[in-house]
Nucleic acid binder design. Structure first.
Length: 829
RNA sequence: GCGGGCGUGGCGGAACGGCAGACGCGCCAGACUUAGGAUCUGGUGGGCAUCCCCCGUGGAGGUUCAAGUCCUCUCGCCCGCACCA
């Protein structure tokens, strides 16, 4: 073995050999348990960053560990390759998006290879490849076929200067990111996925995911935002119009003193027509239309509204209440109309005070009076119903049910559940995405592209205008087509799909990545799914993870997959920070993985990033910490190199002779136990690595303290082989090289994960901590398993303890076997 | 405002309710050296009468023989959602 650790030589060498021997290729193998280990695939921005390094290092430890434990491990990688940056590159620098993307992929693939991650590269997918997006389009058609994809008018971000629609991400502080013009809202026909149809299941099935972080589940729960209440139908006075409102507080129905509609509510202008207020209402609605979502929903935004001039009739008491419109009511939630109960809702209260609307108390705190005229904030707690006709005197909780029942009985409303979750707007007026496979025919209307005509190819060589308008719109070869139904002239849909659509099913494609017949082969999916461990940033806690869950459920309903949840266990890793903040170009605190790997090697980079913090927590980058890990690997190298020749040819179980032998043997097994548990049960790679470091320190201690001639070389050989095996998932290249140095013929990565011998952990003697009144005062060596009575006797006889106990009486003695004794004493009376 | 998380040496971080600070970094001292930004050894929470004791896990209480860990209140920082009727 070389005396020096030369990572520059060994890392590329082993990367080549692993690849040449297909070490990480997998196929379905029913003789082994399977394990699907998946890291969130990256957007090919062009360069790996430290967040990727962390994500993939964590995943690789899991994959390698499981493989060594005898699992058949699927560990694939691919590219979330559609998206805006590619188009910006085209607009700003004239590079076609495809070219830009593929060259970025090539570079990042190269960088990933230098990390030595155990991917099955044969399964690589890129969502921008026609062989992939063909099936994204096919899945869209399935959604369409099952009524889960539909078109409707929706308010979108519109840049009047660029004359184009902007994605939410392109709106920065309420303005267009390219020209800084304030963004408007505009109603356009858009494609949606009916994710709301799955709201209840998406919520309910969170319970089936004990392997997900509580935090993520709560975020999804809040996002779905289930609320239970009632829909109440108000009649418009002097008209046949009815306005349903949603409320979670039907018990406050008698406290309604006005009603409010969203400015976009379809009835608004109808109600105001011919009234003196018509002009004011028109102006208010116009003003709201021009406001961006951001301005519209700003928290500090004062509640503003105008009276429409129309009145509604309260269904329970026939009272006449004015209908207003106000900026705080959202068309997208509930029915776009709310009943105003200022006494018992803070928003309504503020609005009523501002516009001088009456405040009527209908819920009273027990044993107290409330006066609507003088109260300074809404009373939102539970209480007793008053001013509520036949419901007076009921506790309000009960009133909720009673009033809902009453509404249902009289046809004036019904119980209703509402969700905050909205349908998923999937159309983007962009070029670099999967084209939505639909055709508009003047005769037949909307016609889906027949499945056999897929993929609808994204044309290349299109022209990018600086306005940002999608080049598909002005590409006649793409737009003009014939109707698949009548054969007449027709136009293609020019919108493309949100990239989240592409990433909602990639984990299924990995199971049969080259299938020409299907999006994924059912038998392969049945073998591999679910993903046993999914790993990625917490920034995807809501969108990506919710969409992927929705897709899986929809595909389950279509009979295409057999699972209802895609990801069994989820690990959300923390960010990589430098100087306390997220690495970013603008802050100039970016550490390039490529430079680190160049300077210290991939094994050092991986080891540091795993060692510096537990995976869920944010990690502070430290150049000196990296240096420390590099030193450690050198230390391991020298240790193995020192013994490699002497231990090479030995086999069999080593004899343990001296106390030093015994201690080393015990340490080895304690380390195996700790590393195994740290990886398996808690993903605490940092403590697993530190345990390996302690084992190395123990080996050096043995080397230093036992004279050269008396060292047990067969024992040391065994310890070193196990040590290298434990290190293999963390630092795969050096482990491989050291394994070979120790005489290993096959790859260390084909070794079984070592088990520990509980016998070896048993110690003959332990140090007992002796406390007096909870304070450590002494320590005593005792044989393991010494009976409590003996321990008590022994401890009380200790000089130190006896001295401290002088003049006191022992109240009791607590003995934690083989660990600690606490003598509780107090001054003798 | 609502929801979640985190506060432990100079730093990153360890601690089934049972020795606070494992491991690593940094620092100090020493060894080997022509040299060391290599390597090795020892030390390293604070105080102090320096092998003796006291104090110490953001702060204040509490439960317990025993609390970083459990409970109550409180302060600070971070993240997510945010007029959701």
């Amino acid at each position: 073995m070389e005396a020096r650790y030369n990572f520059k030589e060994i890392e590329p060498k082993w990367q080549r050999r692993w690849e040449a021997s297909d070490l990480y290729r997998v196929t379905e193998d029913r003789s082994k348990p399977k394990f699907y280990c998946l890291e969130m695939f990256p957007y090919p921005s062009g360069n790996l960053h430290m967040g990727h390094v962390r994500n993939y290092s964590i995943g690789d430890v899991v994959a390698r560990f499981k493989r060594m434990q005898g699992y058949n491990v699927l560990h694939p990688m691919g590219w979330d390759a559609f998206g805006l940056p590619a188009e910006n590159a085209a607009i700003n620098r004239g590079i076609p998006p495809a070219e830009w993307t593929w060259s970025n992929i090539a570079n990042m693939r190269r960088q990933l290879h230098t990390m030595g991650i155990s991917y099955d590269w044969e399964r690589e997918v890129a969502t921008c490849h026609p062989g992939y997006y063909r099936w994204t389009q096919w899945l869209f058609l399935q959604m369409y076929k099952h009524g889960l994809a539909y078109r409707k008018k929706a308010a979108v971000n519109w840049c009047p200067s660029c004359a184009t629609v902007l994605a939410n991400e392109q709106v920065v502080d309420g303005a267009c990111e390219r020209c800084h013009t304030p963004v408007m809202r505009k109603d356009l026909e858009q494609w949606f996925f009916r994710i709301t149809a799955y709201a209840e299941r998406l919520l309910h099935d969170l319970q089936k995911l004990p392997g997900w972080p509580e935090k993520v589940k709560i975020m999804q729960e809040n996002w779905i935002g289930k609320s239970t209440g009632a829909e109440v139908i108000f009649r418009v006075e002097g008209s046949d119009e009815e306005i349903p409102v949603f409320t979670t507080r039907p018990d406050t129905l008698y406290g309604v003193t006005y009603m409010v509609l969203a400015p976009e509510h379809p009835l608004v202008m109808k109600l105001a027509a011919g009234k003196p207020q018509e002009e004011a209402v028109k102006q208010f609605v116009e003003a709201a239309r021009f406001l961006s979502d951001l301005d519209r929903t700003a928290t500090e935004k004062e509640k503003e509204g105008v009276f429409t001039g129309a009145y509604a009739l309260n269904p329970v008491n026939k009272e006449r209440v004015p209908i207003w419109i106000a900026n705080y009511v959202l068309m997208e939630y509930g029915t776009g109309a709310v009943m105003g109960v200022p006494a018992h809702d803070q928003r309504d209260f503020e609005f009523a005070r501002k516009y001088g609307l009456p405040v009527r108390v209908v819920i009273k705190p027990r044993g107290q009076e409330l006066d609507g005229a003088t109260m300074t904030e809404a009373f939102v707690e539970d209480g007793i119903m008053v001013n509520s006709g036949p419901f007076n005197g009921l506790p309000n909780r009960e009133g909720i049910h009673k009033i809902t029942e009453y509404l249902e009985r009289t046809g004036k409303g019904k119980g209703r559940v509402n969700y905050r979750l909205r349908d998923w707007l999937i159309s983007r007026q962009r070029y670099w995405g999967a084209p939505i496979p639909m055709i508009y025919c003047d005769c037949c209307g909307l016609v889906p592209v027949p499945e056999e005509d897929l993929p609808v190819i994204l044309p290349e060589g299109v022209e990018f205008k600086p306005t940002g308008e999608s080049p598909l719109k002005s590409c006649p070869e793409f737009v003009n087509t014939t109707c698949p139904r009548c054969g007449g002239p027709a136009r293609r849909e020019t919108d493309t799909m949100d990239t989240f659509v592409c990433s909602s099913w990639y984990f299924l494609r990995y199971t049969s990545p080259r299938s020409q017949e299907r999006a994924f082969e059912r038998d392969k999916v049945d073998y591999w799914m679910n993903v046993d461990q999914y790993i990625g940033g917490v920034e995807h806690a809501i969108l990506h993870l919710m969409y992927a869950r929705f897709f899986t459920k929809a595909l389950y309903d279509f009979g295409l997959v057999g699972v209802e949840e895609p990801f069994q266990n989820l690990l959300t890793q923390g960010m990589v920070l430098k100087d306390g903040s997220k690495m970013s170009k603008s802050k100039g605190n970016v550490v390039s993985p490529e430079e680190i790997i160049e300077r210290y090697g991939a094994d050092t980079a991986r080891l540091f990033i795993l060692f510096a913090a537990p995976p869920e927590r944010d990690l502070e980058w430290s150049d000196q910490g990296v240096e420390g890990c590099y030193r450690f690997l050198n230390r391991v190298w020298r240790l193995v190199a020192a013994y490699a020749d002497g231990v090479r040819h030995d086999g069999g179980s080593p004899a343990v002779k001296t106390p030093a032998d015994r201690e080393l043997w015990r340490l080895l097994h304690a380390t195996i136990k700790k590393v195994t548990e740290d990886i398996e049960q808690r993903f605490n790679f940092n403590t697993a690595v530190s345990a390996i470091m302690e084992l190395v320190n123990g080996c050096y201690r043995y080397q230093d303290t036992v004279p050269a001639g008396e060292q047990n070389l067969p024992l040391m050989g065994e310890v070193l082989r196990k040590l290298v095996t434990l290190l293999a998932p963390f630092a795969p290249h050096i482990a491989e090289e050291l394994w070979q140095g120790l005489g290993g013929r096959e790859s260390v990565h084909l070794e079984s994960w070592p088990g520990y011998d509980p016998e070896a952990l048993v110690e003959e003697e332990v140090t007992l901590v002796v406390q007096v009144n909870g304070k450590v005062r002494d320590r005593v060596q005792v044989p393991v398993g010494l009976p409590e009575e003996e321990v008590k006797k022994l401890v009380l006889k200790r000089e130190k303890v006896a001295g401290l106990l002088a003049g006191q009486e022992v109240v009791k003695v607590i003995v934690i076997p083989d660990k600690l004794v606490n003598v509780v004493a107090r001054r003798a009376s």
